Each structure stands twice: as C-alpha cells, then as structure tokens.
Simulated scan of single mutants.
Amino acid sequence: MTGQIATAAACGVVLGCGFWLLLIRLPFMRPTTFVERIGPQLKSHNLESRLLRAVPRNFTPFGPLERILRPVIGDAVLWLGRLNPGSSALKRRLARAGTVKSPADFRAEQLLWGAAGFVAAVGAVVLFGASGRFSPLLAVVLVIGSAAGGFMLRDYLLGARIRKREARMMAEFPSVAELMALAVSAGESATGALDRVCRSARGELSKDFTHVLAETRAGKPLVEALQEFSSRTELGPLLRFVDGLVVAVERGTPLADVLRAQAQDARDTAKRELMESAGKKEIGMMIPVVFGVLPLTVVFAVFPGLAAISMGL
C-alpha cells in the first residue's frame, strides 16, 4: 500500500508540474516587456518571404521538444543567476530595495530561511511518523521542498519590496520634479534645487536624492552622482529624468523646461498605467458576474415559474 501511495504521489507531482507549466505559459500570465511593446514600431519592413528564411538550428537532438522547453530553460538560467553569491545583479536589486545589506548578508539570510523551513519540515515529518502516517518519499519531498521554499521565499520578499518601493517612487516623482522645476525657475542651481527638494519632501525618492546630494558635497561631480543613481534604478521615467538633468547641466539648456516636461511625462505615464489596470480589472470582474451573479439571477427568475407549474397553477 505504501508503494501505491508513493507512486500516486509521484504521478500527482508530475501532473501538478505539468499543469503549472501550462498555466504560467499562458499569454496573460507572462507580462509584456518594453522591448516587445516597441518591437513592432521599430521593426523594419522585410519583403523577404518567410518560407525562404533560415530555420533556427537546434543545439540538442530533441527537435521540437527543445523549442518547446527553450523559454523554460531561459527562465531557469535567470533563476540560477540569482543564486550566485557574488552576483552584481543581486547587488543592484538590494540597491533598488533601498537596503544597505551586502550580497553575502542576503545570502546568509536566505540560508537561515532555508534552514528554518528544513527544521519545520523535519518536525512535521516526526509528528506524522509518531501518528503512524509515515511515507519516506513524501517525507523527502516535504523536507527538500520546505528548505528550497524557505530559501526562495526570501528572494520573493525582496522582489515584493522592490516593487512596492518603486511604486512609491513613481507616485512621488511628478511632485518632486515639479518642485525642482519651481526651485530652478526661482533662480536655484541644480544642486540647490536638489537641496530644497531633500529638505522639503519626504519619501523614497527624496532619500535617494539625499544620497546623491551627500555624494556631491563629498566632492563627487553632480553628473557622476546622478549617473550612479540612474544605475541603481530600472524605472524608465526616472532614467529619462536623470538623463535630461545630466544633459541640461552639461550643455546649459533651460533646466526648468526640461523638469516640467519630465513631470508631465510622468503624470501621463501614471494615467496610462491606471487606464491599463482599469481595463484588466474590468475583465477580471466578469468572472464573478458570469459565474456568481448571473446564475443566481436566472434561478430567481425561473424558480417561481417552475414552482407554479409543479403545483398545477
């Protein structure tokens, strides 16, 4: 009986992994990247027939299976890159999260979370064994899965912190840009406008600008400090803002106009994202309406007639 349970558990795991792969590869589960959005507009018109193009060559003898699994392998390579203890990508992610931890400290935390999951799984296995419901295969899967889950959960929480922090930064960005534009219009220099923003504003973006201002006061050129700030973020509007600020400082172009244009661009981007989010929510609201409200409405409309027919009225 134990062998049958183990075989059933293994088949269930394989079936669950298959359904999970099918789910995450659906079009609405994979976010559209910026490159995919602008690709059709930047693509040059090629009049060559598709039948004459060279077929992508396979590097393994698996044929179509390789093309099917290629996206999964690419995602696996990206995930394995996160496990590198000295990864520069991890250092950038920690900077984006606004933490002062080093990559080694973060990896140590991940190991502690994995050890905690391992200890919790071992305790659960011991309890199951004491109650007489012990399965070796299930115990091994539970222990290994809990340790790996604890290790990856810490990485997921870091990503969630980055998303929340960047969302707050984008919410603060238009106001900060307009405040800098007002300061520059009043006669302040770029450094003076940064100082005024850091003294007046409160938030994640003002903290980063405080760091830039501190580096400038320590002797680093403003352009270099701004470029280092842009290397610590991946937000498109902020990158364009910093690039415009750098160009205005280097070439002497009107800084106030550049800042106002960047603030308006940020507000337009926020409106566009809000409209996209509203469109997605509207589609999601159709699920409870179709499967919840509509059947109840039909029941309330049809039931009195069926009751009258059954009573012979």
Rank of each mutant, 00 (worst) to 15 (best):
R154L: 13
L239W: 08
W113F: 11
E215T: 00
A89S: 14
L306G: 04
L90F: 02
G150H: 08
V141E: 13
F118H: 10
M152D: 06
A8L: 13
G244K: 03
K271E: 15
L90H: 00
K207L: 05
A95T: 03
K281S: 14
L137M: 07
I287V: 15
G305K: 08
P288K: 11
F300W: 13
S206W: 07
A278C: 08
R202V: 08
A171D: 15
V55L: 10
F28M: 02
V77T: 08
Q110F: 02
C198G: 06
G63Q: 04
T99F: 04
H211Q: 13
T253I: 08
R82G: 07
L179T: 07
R154V: 04
G81L: 00
R92H: 12
V122M: 09
T216K: 09
G284W: 13
A120F: 12
F28V: 11
T253K: 00
N58Y: 13
F291L: 09
R93G: 01
L69H: 05
A270T: 10
T60I: 07
L15T: 12
A190W: 08
L238R: 00
R70G: 03
V140I: 13
V143F: 04
A177G: 05
T191V: 15
L296F: 15
M311Y: 10
I5A: 09
Q41W: 14
A167G: 05
A214H: 09
Q264F: 10
V126Q: 06
S189W: 02
L111T: 05
S277L: 07
T297P: 05
G114T: 02
L194P: 01
V290T: 15
F300E: 07
I162A: 10
E224M: 00
R267D: 09
L222C: 03
T60H: 07
L222Q: 11
P295A: 13
V140Q: 05
N84M: 01
S230N: 09
L306V: 12
V293A: 14
A108L: 14
M311G: 01
V119F: 01
G39W: 11
A121T: 10
T233R: 11
I309N: 05
A89C: 03
L179F: 11
L296H: 04
D208G: 04
L112D: 12
E234R: 14
D155W: 13
L157M: 02
A201K: 04
D208R: 14
G203Q: 08
D268M: 03
L26Q: 14
G159I: 06
D75K: 11
T269I: 08
L42S: 00
A6E: 02
G203I: 06
R202P: 12
R93A: 04
E109T: 11
H211P: 01
F128S: 01
N84T: 08
F59P: 06
T2Q: 01
L158S: 08
R50M: 04
C198W: 05
V242N: 00
V289E: 01
L274H: 14
